[in-house]
């Protein structure tokens, strides 16, 4: 096999893995959008908040320590313990459940039957509030997230593949980050469990029912408010997974919340209402931007990854506005 061919495979593999991360974030959007018609601008900040909370809890950081110290003149920052990653993750999950309940109690409940634009504005407010709240709770410095996921290129894979190229070519084996591989496996498991849950449980069916028809859902006894709490909990859970993976890769800092921006083109490709769409849209964008950078990038000066996804989304908006899998938009005249 020619090194060129092997490089291309490597690029596609890396693209798929980046794509999985985009899919994860997009999935959070789709879940909430389907169940409540809300475009949740705060999805990215939720990922950041979840990651910050996880780091804080794991490191035994005292929440709101700056505030406490300023008010009481104390000087406390740490409880003086470090928790195992798994315990910290479980506690963070509980925090995300509380968060979902609060969102429902304090926001959604009061905005039932409002225009989508008003709900959207509410989530913008929520995003900025959470960003500030997260900083207040855990401090705004860049944090290192270490839950024990290995990183760096997989030597095993490099050794296995180094012989694939012809003798004497300067090919040193395939480079794929272990973190990316693990993120991919975790994301796949997450999607499979979510799918099984929504297909084969009472609550899963209720989630789909609410996504399809609110009145009919009420008529069979489904409480919309309970479903919203569950949906936001799941979205919070997905945000946590995305936050952990991105955080482990590039640190927990404000820019993590910007991954939500990458989800937007994914949603335009996949359609706002389709879970398979979110997944495949993410993969297409991941692979597309890596391949584009690899093939066309050098010709036009590189750095195409910054804009490729958005241009692709624009093309879709013109030719197929409902996305690959989204519900067909029927114009009402």
């Amino acid at each position: 096999m020619s090194p060129q061919f092997l490089f291309t495979i490597e690029v596609i593999a890396n693209g798929l893995m980046a794509g999985v991360m985009y899919s994860l974030v997009a999935l959070g959007f789709v879940l909430i959008f389907k169940a409540s018609g809300i475009f949740n601008y705060a999805q990215g900040v939720m990922a950041l908040f979840a990651a910050m909370t996880l780091v804080g809890i794991q490191n035994g950081q005292v929440p709101f320590s700056h505030l406490i110290n300023a008010v009481f003149g104390t000087n406390i920052h740490h409880f003086g313990w470090n928790l195992p990653a798994i315990v910290a993750i479980l506690i963070t999950l509980v925090v995300m459940v509380l968060f979902a309940i609060l969102v429902e109690r304090l926001i959604l409940k009061h905005l039932v039957n409002q225009e989508p634009i008003i709900l959207f504005m509410a989530t913008i407010g929520l995003a900025y509030f959470m960003e500030g709240f997260g900083d207040l709770m855990w401090g705004s410095e860049i944090k290192i997230l270490d839950v024990g996921i290995p990183s760096g290129g997989s030597l095993w894979l490099e050794e296995k593949t180094i012989g694939w190229a012809a003798e004497g070519s300067n090919y040193y084996g395939m480079y794929i980050d272990k973190l990316d591989m693990i993120a991919t496996v975790v994301a796949i498991l997450l999607v499979i469990s979510l799918t099984l849950f929504s297909q084969y449980t009472k609550t899963g069916r209720a989630l789909r029912a609410v996504a399809d028809d609110h009145q009919a859902a009420l008529s069979v006894g489904i409480s919309l408010r309970k479903i919203w709490v569950i949906v936001w909990t799941i979205a919070g859970f997905v945000a946590l997974v995305a936050g952990v993976m991105w955080g482990a890769k590039s640190g927990v800092q404000f820019s993590l919340s910007l991954i939500a921006l990458k989800a937007l083109p994914v949603l335009i490709l996949g359609g706002f209402t389709s879970i398979p769409g979110a997944i495949i849209g993410g993969l297409i964008i991941g692979v597309g931007e890596k391949l584009f950078e690899f093939t066309i990038g050098p010709l036009i000066g590189g750095a195409t990854e910054n804009w490729f996804a958005y241009v692709l989304a624009l093309v879709f908006l013109v030719f197929r506005p409902q996305g690959l899998f989204g519900d067909k938009i029927i114009e009402r005249v």
Binding site: R205, R208, A209, A211, D212, D213, Q215, A216, A217, S219
Partner: peptide
């Protein structure tokens, strides 16, 4: 007006 869960 039929109110089924159309996707299911």
């Amino acid at each position: 007006n039929i109110a089924l869960f159309k996707g299911m």
